[in-house]
């Protein structure tokens, strides 16, 4: 029988669907041996493997205080849930405030516009946050073969979130300044201090966000370079 048609080489006829399949199939049947590649005596590998296994398994390790670990894990879990709940409640509160101010208390128009836009932006933030948090909380469900792609997707989602915050900073500058001018003029109070305070707040928020933007961009490049190795 022609060796190439042997059932042993059946895998070479299968169309390759995935990278994993390709790796298995090519390795078994079709890769030519490179004459210039350094050849390693398998007996050396096997002989050393037993010693390596023993060395590996007898490595010393720091014992963990399990009670402290349980406490800390619970605390981290609760903190993450509380943060998310705080954001959701904050958003709902903003929207309720708009309704309350419009229908019951007849608040001034600038306040209603300001709260309405803040509520809308808050909904966007919460949606993004839930998406990002759920992705990181479901890490255990990811196929380890797709872990790098998953890390790239998570990093890109974080960058989108950061861009959204930056965008909201741009939107906040005219909106907040307009709101302050309107309110302060109505109350006939000095304008400079509230304007300086609010613009400084936006600037600090923007700079912090920019720092994380640069950091996440570097991280994304690193992951991508890793995936192309």
């Amino acid at each position: 029988m022609n060796e190439e048609n042997s059932p042993l080489n059946e895998k070479s006829k299968v169309s390759l669907q995935t990278k994993s399949q390709a790796e298995t199939t090519l390795d078994v049947t079709s890769l030519p041996k490179r004459s210039d590649a350094p050849t390693l005596d398998t007996s050396v590998v096997d002989e050393q493997w037993a010693a390596m296994t023993q060395d590996w398994q007898t490595q010393p390790f720091v014992k963990t205080d399990m009670s402290a670990l349980v406490k800390q894990t619970k605390r981290s879990m609760n903190r993450a849930k509380a943060l998310l709940a705080f954001d959701v409640i904050g958003t709902v509160f903003l929207l309720l405030a708009v309704g309350y101010g419009y229908f019951i208390k007849q608040w001034q128009t600038p306040t209603l516009i300001y709260l309405g836009i803040a509520g809308f932006l808050s909904i966007l933030f919460v949606c993004y946050e839930i998406k990002i948090r759920l992705a990181s909380w479901r890490l255990f469900e990811i196929n380890p073969e797709n872990i790098i792609e998953n890390a790239i997707a998570n990093c890109q989602a974080s960058i989108q979130y950061i861009k959204l915050i930056k965008l909201s900073c741009y939107a906040l500058i005219p909106l907040m300044n307009w709101y302050i001018v309107e309110i302060v003029t109505l109350k006939e109070k000095p304008l400079l201090f509230p304007l300086l305070l609010s613009n400084s707040f936006i600037l600090v928020m923007f700079l912090i966000t920019h720092y994380f933007h640069v950091k996440k961009n570097k991280e994304l490049l690193q992951i991508k370079s890793h995936s192309s190795e």
Binding site: I147, A151, Q222, I223
Partner: peptide, 12 residues
Amino acid sequence: IAHNVLATHVAK
């Protein structure tokens, strides 16, 4: 779970 966390860490 450990491998997913570690692989993500290595990639980053």
